[in-house]
Every structure is written in structure tokens, then in C-alpha cells.
Simulated assay, not measured.
Amino acid sequence: MEFEEYLRLKKIDQQTFSTVDPARYAEWKELFTTMHPDSFTAQKKFLVNEIRRRYHLKEEVSKPQ
């Protein structure tokens, strides 16, 4: 899974996140490539919720089957 897809599944607007907070975006993207998505979520759980509230994705997201 790519980081951009992960953000979409978490309903985070990747474009806004990367523009407004580029340092955190870059840090998370690099970290994401080194671990499983579930491990990343466990490590960043409360931060992911904060980022989702700040950069909420407006479109509907459907989970891949």
C-alpha cells in the first residue's frame, strides 16, 4: 500500500496535508515505507485522528475489496 492510498483510507486530504505541514508529511511518508500500515496506525493513532480533523478529505472513500 502506498502512503497516498493510506491517507485516502484514513480520510485525510493528502494535497492539503503535504502543502500545509510538509515536514510532518515527509516524516510520516518516510516512516510509512519502513513499516506495516497497521503498525504505523498503532504508533500514530492519536496523531492520525488530529491530522484527519485538520485535513479532512471531502470525498467519499471506498475500501478496496
Rank of each mutant, 00 (worst) to 15 (best):
E2N: 15
E2I: 04
F3I: 05
F3E: 06
F3P: 03
E4C: 04
E4D: 08
E5G: 08
E5I: 14
Y6A: 09
Y6N: 06
L7G: 05
L7I: 10
L7E: 07
L7M: 14
R8D: 15
R8L: 12
L9D: 05
L9T: 03
L9C: 13
L9V: 03
K10L: 09
K10F: 04
K11M: 15
K11E: 12
K11P: 01
I12E: 06
I12R: 04
D13V: 01
D13C: 10
Q14R: 07
Q15G: 03
Q15Y: 07
T16N: 08
F17V: 01
F17G: 00
F17Q: 00
S18L: 01
S18E: 11
T19V: 02
T19R: 11
T19W: 03
T19N: 12
T19K: 12
T19L: 07
V20Q: 09
D21T: 06
D21I: 02
P22F: 02
A23F: 06
R24W: 05
R24Y: 03
R24I: 06
R24V: 05
Y25R: 01
Y25D: 00
Y25N: 00
A26R: 12
A26E: 14
A26Q: 15
E27N: 06
W28L: 14
W28E: 03
W28I: 00
K29R: 13
K29H: 13
E30F: 05
L31N: 09
L31M: 15
F32T: 02
F32P: 02
T33G: 13
T34F: 10
T34K: 14
T34W: 03
M35V: 09
M35H: 02
M35Q: 09
H36L: 06
H36D: 14
P37T: 02
P37F: 04
P37M: 03
P37E: 03
P37V: 02
D38F: 04
D38I: 01
D38P: 00
S39A: 11
F40N: 01
F40K: 02
F40E: 01
T41E: 13
T41Y: 06
Q43M: 13
Q43F: 10
K44T: 08
K44S: 01
K44C: 04
K44G: 00
K45L: 12
K45P: 00
F46A: 10
F46I: 01
F46E: 14
F46M: 05
F46Y: 07
L47C: 03
L47V: 07
V48W: 03
V48R: 01
N49T: 09
N49Y: 09
E50A: 08
I51L: 11
R52Q: 09
R53T: 11
R53S: 08
R54V: 02
R54K: 10
Y55E: 05
H56L: 14
H56K: 12
L57N: 08
L57M: 11
K58A: 15
K58E: 10
E59A: 07
E59Q: 13
E59N: 08
E60R: 10
E60A: 08
E60I: 11
V61P: 01
K63M: 13
K63N: 06
P64S: 09
Q65N: 08
Q65V: 07
Q65F: 11
